[in-house]
Amino acid sequence: MTVTAKVRKLVLERDNWSCVCCGQSVIGRPYSLQHRRAKKMGGSRLPWIDQPQNLITVLGSGTTHCHARMEARGADDKFKGYVVSEWPQIDPRLIPVEVATVDGRRWMWLTPDGGRALTPPADAEMAGCGIHVDFFTCDTCEGCKQCGPCGCELAAEWAREAS
Rank of each mutant, 00 (worst) to 15 (best):
F135V: 04
C129I: 10
L110T: 04
R106S: 07
W87A: 12
Q146D: 00
S61P: 01
V84D: 00
L110C: 06
G104Y: 04
L118T: 15
V97E: 07
G60R: 07
G81R: 01
M70Y: 03
S61L: 12
T4M: 03
C22A: 05
E13I: 04
R69M: 09
P30F: 00
T137E: 14
P120N: 10
L94C: 01
S18R: 15
Y82M: 04
V20L: 03
G62Y: 07
G43S: 05
D15E: 08
G60D: 01
N16W: 06
R8P: 03
D113T: 13
G60H: 09
A127S: 15
M70F: 09
L10F: 03
E13H: 05
R8F: 05
L59M: 13
M70P: 01
G128L: 15
E142K: 15
T57I: 02
M41G: 13
Q89M: 09
A5N: 07
R116H: 09
V83I: 15
R45W: 06
V11W: 08
A5S: 11
D139P: 13
R105M: 14
G143F: 09
M126K: 13
V133D: 10
P112W: 02
M41A: 14
G128E: 15
T4V: 03
P92Y: 02
G28D: 10
Y82G: 04
D123P: 06
V20T: 13
L33K: 03
C21V: 12
E125S: 11
W87Y: 10
W48Q: 03
G143I: 11
I56S: 04
G130R: 06
D103R: 13
W87K: 12
C21N: 06
V3D: 08
G128T: 15
I56W: 01
K40W: 11
S18N: 11
L94D: 07
V97G: 04
L94I: 00
C129Q: 12
H132R: 07
L33F: 09
K80G: 01
D139V: 11
V20Y: 13
D77I: 00
S44V: 06
P52S: 06
M126Y: 10
F135C: 02
R29W: 10
M108Q: 15
S32K: 01
P96Y: 12
L10D: 09
L33H: 03
L46C: 03
T137G: 07
R93Q: 12
V58F: 08
L110N: 06
D76V: 09
H132Q: 01
F135R: 11
G42H: 11
P120H: 15
Q146R: 15
W87T: 14
D103L: 13
E125W: 04
R106W: 07
A75C: 00
W107Q: 07
W107I: 11
G81C: 04
T101L: 05
E71Q: 11
C22R: 02
A100Y: 09
T140K: 12
L55A: 10
K40C: 06
S32Y: 03
C22Y: 10
A124D: 10
L118C: 06
M70E: 06
R116N: 01
T140Q: 14
C138K: 01
Q51M: 13
C19W: 07
G81V: 04
G43Q: 04
D134W: 03
A117T: 12
C22I: 05
